[in-house]
Design a protein around this nucleic acid. Sequence first.
DNA 1: TCTGGGGTCCTAGGACCC
DNA 2: TCTGGGGTCCTAGGACCC
Length: 439
Amino acid sequence: MPVAASPRLDSTRRKPVFALVDGNNFYVSCERVFNPALEARPVVVLSNNDGCAVARSAEAKALGIAMGQPWFQIQSMAQSHGLIALSSNYELYADMSNRMMRILADFSPRQEVYSIDECFLDLRGMDVDLTLLAHGMRQRVAQWIGIPVGIGIGESKTLAKLANHLAKKQPQWQGVCDLTTLEESAQDRLMACVDVGDVWGVGRRLKEQLNARGIVTALDLKRADPVIIQRQFSVVLARTVRELQGISCLPLESMVAPRQQIIVSRSFGKPVWYLPELRQAITAHMSRAAEKLRTQASVAQMVQVFIRTSPFSARPFYSQGITLPLAAASDDTRLLVKIAQQGLTRIYRAGYDYQKVGVLLMDIQPKGQGARTDLFHDAQHDRRTDQLMQTLDSINARMGKHTLKLAGEGFVQPWAMKRNRHTPAYTTNIRQLARAWAK
DNA sequence: TCTGGGGTCCTAGGACCC
DNA sequence: TCTGGGGTCCTAGGACCC
């Protein structure tokens, strides 16, 4: 077998190169695709319950609206500045995300979908002009689905992130910043312009502590000694320092690992004090959680329930959670709901206005693979349960979410969240699309 | 009046064992 | 009655991300 002179082998030896591609103001951009009247106007997309702004158009950012700012604080700008606010439409964003990721996957054999609006691509050993390639990505995504994206390229994920940040902040890049084309001195000059708090992995707290030690810019952090950083902070931050130095420590993870915990929680549209309504919400949340669990072919052996009142209210605060084990790991909605309801009974206190409840599934294992079972385990019963859950999931997949559900979720849900500014599910629900056209 | 939801990883500290 | 240290496992809480 000839091993020398293999170009493939040579290329894998080259330094790692990563691209980070993300959608600009992704949720707002999705809305604009289907409603061009939103172009060139200040637009925000609100979080669940129409609580705060989670996506802002460039025009909204220019008005000084911060990420996560509560809607009631900026509501007056609707009148004064023509600000448009929309409830979030996750069905639409998830579908647009899938389309965007499929387009980008054609540009590299290895892709890591990192969040709903961004992915890493492995560009190592590609024998092409990467800057040109990136402009090609931008063009194709814009042409095929109408979403503007920004692209950063670097020798580590952290550098690709930083390049992406520069591509957005500095117009001269025209949406593509490729650090691998620059001399180190030129890279350093750019990093001197980036606040250390804008480095991936440095949050509010770390920024404060780093500033106190005189580390203010990304370049300062790059020049820090990772050994000292590890001693004074953590292994995580030391890794960030090395990544800034061009030493790739975080590999591309193209396999989607199954979730280790699954959370479903929602704030109520109004305060809830009545136990039966809390029970409905717990049943509804656990039904969603169990669906997610079955989607990834797992079972859970631990259930947590929590309830709390609003931390912003002047009324007395109460927050309590409880964790309950199952005798054997399960994905049966009915059993998980039953355990969660037992938990709720134990933590519920009368006399409070509750603002939020949630459930967690933990101790998650692959289904049917060395799962622990209890002493009185009944295989016949397991088979019937599996069939029932499969039927439930397939009917809901075919006929639409919530077609078939436990009666305990309630048919009238007085506690349901507010979504007063919701747009239609243009791409996934033909009935809603027809309604949108008829307007 | 009105302030999101869903994840991961690391660390410190306690319980327990040898 | 006095005396030690190391390892493991678990949990809670903190910090970060989008």
